[in-house]
């Protein structure tokens, strides 16, 4: 279900305002993307059931099915295609709602064209990195402390035999940490690599995700052996586990 690497990255634009939709589509095409546009959430879900794309640019206030519901439905179906929300409501609570629904980034209307294009590129770059970093059979699977993570399937089996369904963010954080075992990775670095620049107001989000990973993979989450906190800096991932 994950987006395939394509020569011209395919983008689905879901926007009910014809002018805005046309503007976004024209600019994405000018950047070399292959673009398809639909006007409501239902059409988007129908299109995504048939086709694949590398990114969904999703308006929040849509007729029939709103953008948050579209994103939630996709995630529930195990579709991890990245989503960039476009919305007229730009308050922080709404941003959090969008990201909780499984969105990758959030842009408030009216937005700057160059910022929009930059964010599109950033999301696609992050996913390209993730896909290429999980391309070989060796890099697609991570084993540590009796846990086994399949980066391509977004699934894992923890030390006690429990099957785990990973969210894209959890998988990406794990990937960033696993690329540099034993090294200190700062919270800012994790934010930049996994979310992009200014999506979240604080680095506490990273801490919450690390807590979730500890719950999934540590035998004693209160005394972690693999996901170690380096106070005031960030985290250190130990494959062997620290005694």
């Amino acid at each position: 279900m994950n987006a395939a690497v394509q020569p011209a990255a395919a983008v689905l634009v879901v926007e009910d305002d014809p002018h805005l939709s046309a503007g976004v589509v024209e600019n994405l095409r000018a950047e070399g993307y292959s673009v398809h546009a639909v006007g409501d959430g239902q059409q988007a879900l129908q299109w995504l059931a048939r086709e694949q794309c590398a990114l969904i640019v999703l308006d929040v206030m849509l007729p029939i099915v709103d953008g948050f519901a579209v994103c939630r439905t996709l995630r529930e179906q195990g579709d991890n295609t990245p989503v960039l929300f476009l919305t007229a409501r730009g308050d922080p609570a709404d941003r959090v709602r969008g990201l909780e629904a499984g969105g990758d980034d959030y842009l408030a209307k009216p937005f700057h064209l160059q910022e929009f294009l930059l964010r599109v590129r950033a999301i696609l770059r992050r996913w390209d990195w993730y896909r290429s970093a999980s391309a070989t059979p060796a890099s697609a699977v991570l084993r540590f402390g009796g846990n086994e993570v399949d980066f391509r399937a977004f699934r894992a089996q923890s030390w006690n035999g429990v099957e785990q369904e990973l969210t894209e963010k959890e998988a990406m954080i794990l990937k960033v940490l696993a690329e540099r075992p034993g090294e200190i990775v700062s919270r800012e670095d994790l934010l930049e690599r996994v979310w992009g620049y200014d999506v979240f107001p604080s680095t506490r989000t990273v801490d919450n995700f690390i807590l979730r990973l500890r719950k999934r993979f540590e035998r004693d989450p209160a005394n972690p052996r693999h996901f170690l906190t380096v106070w005031g800096v960030g985290y250190r991932f130990m494959i062997e586990g620290q005694e």
């Binding site: 002018h19 805005l20 503007g23 600019n27 007229a88 209307k109 064209l113 160059q114």
Partner: peptide
């Protein structure tokens, strides 16, 4: 929404 459309057209 119309403001966003206007801005997008101008910036294009």
């Amino acid at each position: 929404t119309p403001l966003a459309s206007l801005q997008l057209s101008l910036e294009t």
